[in-house]
Nucleic acid binder design. Structure first.
Lengths: 389, 389
DNA sequence: ATGAAAGCGCTAACAA
DNA sequence: TTGTTAGCGCTTTCAT
């Protein structure tokens, strides 16, 4: 067959011919007879089903089902026999079958904008830790900050008849919002990371507007008058945009200039922070303090300031956001806004589980708050600017 | 009913009484009749099924199924009518039903040790980007570096009849290994991040032993003789342990001291890097160069060195691992070993898809390699140590 | 190219 | 406490 070496068939998986006697069987069945296990079951044997366990234990299938799902509902004697049969046969439940029969699954999709931005990872980790513990599976989805992608993604995710749904943020397409409202009548839905919107069902997070306001006030209270806010990709990251807007409003309310706002393109990187600070200082050399949208940007700004011979905090105060490890690590250490993302994940997952257990939660909206961690990078009075405004 | 306020029932979700006429229906059916959609379908109407679409389009259910899965197999005319019906009815496929009927799902579990360690996140992101594109769903699992957890986790995951399986590393319990070998006969399985083991099916990554060797040789070639390696949690992180082992072997092969090995407890943090360097220098002040298990540790070591008045690289050379952004950002910039994690994720997912498409991959093992990125933190000859060995 | 029939493995309802 | 019955929505096979 050497002459066939370049034949396309050689690039494809060659399936062994099916025995004619078996050909009219469905694939899963056929695999059973042929001794191949597609999922679960003892190796080299046909997949073990609930029925097999039931037969082995000498009980009805439904009793096995119950013993596995609500052990308390089955007598201890039977339970023991069933557990033994499960172990002996290496039974693994078929989740698809149980989802179909029950009308819902133990899948919980978690939809976040991106994994590239490190804030969602601890959150995801926190959610996963709690849900995994309770036998739920996290299905991952990323929107890349696109509402249309979110809508499509969620649409597909609903096909799993999920136990609940966890969505980052409050900004959804109108069509999705309607869909979610209907969903929330039968399944818990938690919007997280953001409190600046009308909850569809449950909501856990903090107000990005409150953060913007708090940081603006914090600097203003300390006598700063030229206070800037810097971010990247705020046209997509609506939470960053809300921080910036509330920031500007708070400054305006105090009669301070509110137009030191810079939003750049590209990812939020240390290098980007340097570039943005350079751009900001070129336009507005009088700026005394900068609130950056995350700690990478802030660290980059710090390094750029040092390259320019600007002293931080004496010549320029910097504050980051997220309180990532890098904030405490650089010299001078960066002030930052701390949010417990992993804890938020825990809270979200716990709330979901409570709801699934049938409890009516205390509150539909949980504010997990934030705090301003003041470090060396803001530990000096504002530099005199010469103007008298 | 005020007197019932503290009754347990008030803490539970009160389900509306089921209409007796409906009570003998199954829950999913009942929801349909009651006008509630559990998954998919138009809001406020009963869930739309394939049958509904078929009826609307005036074709058989199977034709709709085909039109959705292999459009080419259906005539253009019918396809158009079907697509219109799908859109009009807002049909969302029930994945559980299709998984059950087909015997396998479009779920791909990705099992990683942890999300707390940032290296797995870009990988996961890369996998997700490719699989999402093709309509596959990533199911997330974390082992916390525990083989027993991995075995249990995978066991449960198999209940989804996944399209394939992606596992970090080559270190599995013997029982799981047997199970996976059986699985691999029907589903593609990719072990990733590590090449130091016998592949069960497919394998993508790089050799951590090769990394350890390469870094040891790199320092030795440049005249360093007291070369240390520092990590945390190597008893769990077997990849870090392999790097250390090969590192020591390479030094020994050159007649250099191979016992400057320090492994600490706790998470790999910047602060931890400082503590570990302090400990290392206390024990072995003669050390000239240190290879740290990641860039956070390396940055922490750098800051600790600076606190002690040690010049990097003149007094102490430092090299990190992963080439994270922080490595390039600190001053002096840290040398590091670069690995394209996101690209690895792409490669893994692509390989999986090829296999699912029936192709026989070129190779069962793909080495994605690594490179040593030399920066300022190693840019000086070794400090004289006075000894003559 | 399209359809009819069968059944994937499990669980809800009801009965015993 | 346990079993019987029916059926979840889809895809496979085989026939047309």
């Amino acid at each position: 067959m050497v002459w066939l070496r370049n034949h396309p068939r050689f690039d494809r998986h060659v399936r062994p011919p099916v025995h004619p006697r078996l050909s009219r069987l469905r694939p899963a069945l056929r695999a059973r007879v042929a001794g191949l296990s597609v999922s679960g079951g003892r190796v080299g044997k046909r997949p073990v089903t609930l029925k097999d366990v039931a037969a082995r234990a000498g009980v009805g299938a439904i009793t096995v089902s119950r013993a596995l799902r609500e052990p308390a509902a089955v007598s201890a004697a039977l339970r023991a026999r069933i557990e033994q049969a499960v172990a002996e046969l290496g039974y693994v439940a078929n989740h698809a079958a149980s989802s179909m029969a029950a009308g819902h699954s133990r899948i919980v999709p978690v939809v976040v904008p991106t994994l590239a931005h490190p804030v969602y990872v601890p959150f995801l980790d926190g959610v996963n830790a709690v849900l995994d513990e309770q036998g739920y599976q996290v299905l991952l989805g990323t929107t890349e900050y696109r509402q249309d992608r979110e809508a499509r993604l969620v649409e597909g995710l609903l096909g799993w008849a999920p136990a609940g749904l966890l969505l980052a943020g409050v900004d959804h397409t109108p069509a999705l919002r309607v869909r979610l409202q209907a969903l929330a009548r039968t399944r818990p839905l938690v919007e997280f990371m953001d409190l600046d919107g009308e909850p569809i069902d449950l909501m856990v997070g903090f107000s990005h507007r409150a953060v913007g306001r708090a940081v603006a006030d914090w600097f203003a209270d300390r006598g700063f008058r030229h206070i800037a806010i810097v971010s990247t990709g705020a046209e997509h990251d609506l939470r960053a945009a809300r921080r910036a807007q509330a920031f500007a409003e708070a400054l305006a309310a105090r009669g301070l200039r509110d137009d030191y706002i810079l939003d750049g393109q590209g990812p939020s990187s240390i290098a980007g922070g340097g570039r943005l600070l350079a751009e900001l200082l070129q336009r507005h050399p009088q700026v005394q303090a900068v609130f950056l949208a995350n700690d990478d940007l802030a660290a980059g700004a710090l390094f750029e300031a040092q390259r320019r011979g600007l002293r931080v905090p004496q010549d320029l105060a910097l504050m980051g956001f997220n309180d990532a490890p890098i904030a405490a690590a650089v010299v001078p250490a960066l002030s930052s806004v701390a949010v417990d993302r992993r804890g938020m994940g825990h809270t979200v997952a716990t709330l979901l589980l409570e709801r699934l257990a049938g409890a009516t939660p205390q509150a539909r909206v949980i504010d997990t708050g934030f705090s301003i961690v003041a470090r060396a990078s803001t530990d000096a009075p504002p530099r005199p600017t010469g103007d008298l405004t």
